[in-house]
C-alpha cells in the first residue's frame, strides 16, 4: 500500500471534492478498461465483475457531483492532483492483471484499491485542520470503508480453499 505521509495538504473542501470526484472517475474508467480487457480475452466472468464495480464507482461519482453543485471547485490539471502514488488511489494497478485471473484474485486487487482510497481520506481526516475538509474527509472515508466491507463480503463467496487456478490449455498464437 502506498503511503500517504508525503502528500501535500488539501486546503479546502472544494479541493477535496475535486480529488474525490477524480478518484471515482478514474476508478470507474479503470474498471471499464479492465472489463474491456477481460472481454477481449474471453474471461467473461471477470468482465462482468469489473463492469459491475465500474457501475458502482459511477454512482459514487454522481453522488459527489451532486455535492459539488454550488461549491467553489478548483480546476486541477491531471499532473497536479495530490495523490500519493503513481495514479489515483482507487484505480487498480493494470500491471497486476492477468487474463486468467480468478474472481478471488480480482477482488483482492479491488480490495486493495478500496483500502487505498480509505487510507487516503483517512489520512486527510487526520491531518487537516479545516473543519469543512474534515467533515467531507470523514464522510468519504466512511463510504470507502463501506466499499471495503462490500468487497470483503464478495470475497467471502470465493474461499481460498475452493479456488482453482485457471490454466490455458492452448499454446500462445502469433497474430502478426
Amino acid at each position: 500500500m502506498t503511503t500517504n505521509d508525503n502528500i501535500a495538504p488539501i486546503s479546502s473542501a472544494g479541493e477535496l471534492l475535486a480529488h474525490a470526484y477524480q478518484m471515482e472517475l478514474d476508478a470507474q474508467e479503470r474498471y471499464d478498461f479492465l472489463a474491456d480487457q477481460m472481454e477481449t480475452h474471453n474471461n467473461t466472468g471477470l468482465a462482468r465483475l469489473f463492469r459491475e464495480l465500474s457501475r458502482i464507482e459511477g454512482l459514487h461519482a454522481n453522488d459527489i457531483a451532486e455535492q459539488m453543485k454550488g461549491m467553489d471547485i478548483p480546476e486541477i490539471r491531471p499532473v497536479d492532483f495530490k495523490f500519493p502514488g503513481e495514479e489515483s488511489p482507487e484505480a487498480l494497478d493494470m500491471g497486476d492483471m492477468h487474463y486468467l485471473m480468478t474472481p478471488r484474485q480480482a477482488l483482492q486487487l479491488a480490495l486493495r484499491a478500496e483500502q487505498n482510497a480509505f487510507a487516503f481520506f483517512n489520512h486527510i481526516l487526520k491531518v487537516t485542520t479545516d473543519e469543512e475538509v474534515k467533515g467531507f474527509a470523514a464522510e468519504f472515508a466512511e463510504e470507502e470503508e463501506e466499499h471495503v466491507e462490500l468487497v470483503l463480503r464478495e470475497l467471502s463467496k470465493y474461499p481460498e480453499s475452493e479456488e482453482r487456478q485457471r490454466e490455458d490449455l492452448d499454446p500462445p498464437v502469433s497474430p502478426e
Partner: peptide
Amino acid sequence: TPIWCPGCG
C-alpha cells in the same frame, strides 16, 4: 480495446 495481454506494460 487493445489486444495486449492484461497486465502488459
